[in-house]
Simulated scan of single mutants.
Amino acid sequence: MSKLRIAVFASGQGTNFQALADAAQQDRLEGASLELLVCDKPQAPVVERARKAGVETFVFRAKDYESKEAYEREILAELRRRGIELVVLAGYMRILTPVLVEPYMGRMINIHPSLLPAFPGMNGIKQAIDYGVKVTGVTVHYVDGGLDSGPVIAQRVVEVLDGDTEETLAVRIHAAEQEVLPWTVGRIAAGSVSLAGRHVTVTTL
């Protein structure tokens, strides 16, 4: 059985990339192969994480292109050249256009720091703190071109404690992300995730 070939898109620290790289090294991704990091910030720490993990990179600066579609066409060519079958958005801070979304519809996932559909968009952790909810969490969902609006694959609940700040809650949110994202990718690689309309079924071992 061939390995599922994965590309991760990230823009910052890369802790979720690292969680996937560690899981791959420990054979916890059901044999999935981490083939490529796509990053829009050449100086981002995630680029060094990829180098240390032995994962090739496609690094670019958006300002070097005439449009978002222009650099996305170049990314798409790179994905196709490498036979990428699953795209994982893990802290990628750019809204995608149909140039990338449509070819990978049903094969592109994102991780978001809230229990969607609550608190989509930027600053999901701060939104939860400001609203005063008692629980929040993380969501892995398919990308459908909307703002964190795609079908939900997996979620983990994180309790909001009395006295939590954005920073203290973020520690537990990120820990949950680093658990649920490799688990979800492993289920996809194992062929255990099916999508029908907005409803996702995940079978476990």
Rank of each mutant, 00 (worst) to 15 (best):
V143K: 03
L147S: 06
V101G: 07
D148N: 02
E30L: 03
Q43A: 15
F58T: 10
E56F: 08
A21N: 07
L37V: 02
E102T: 10
G132K: 08
L20E: 05
L89F: 03
F60A: 08
V55Q: 11
K3G: 13
R187I: 04
R81G: 09
D27L: 08
V101H: 11
L89N: 00
Y104T: 00
R94N: 11
S2Y: 05
R81V: 01
S67C: 05
L195P: 00
I84F: 04
K126S: 12
E48F: 12
T165Y: 00
T15D: 09
H112Q: 13
K41G: 00
L79A: 00
V200M: 03
L181K: 08
R198G: 04
P151F: 09
A176Y: 08
H141A: 04
V143E: 08
L116G: 04
Y65R: 12
P42C: 14
M108G: 03
G54I: 13
T184D: 10
R28K: 15
A154H: 03
A23H: 01
Y65I: 12
G14D: 04
I188F: 03
V140D: 01
Q43T: 15
R28P: 02
E78K: 14
M122N: 13
D22E: 15
M93A: 12
Y65K: 11
I75V: 15
P103G: 01
A70K: 14
L86Q: 01
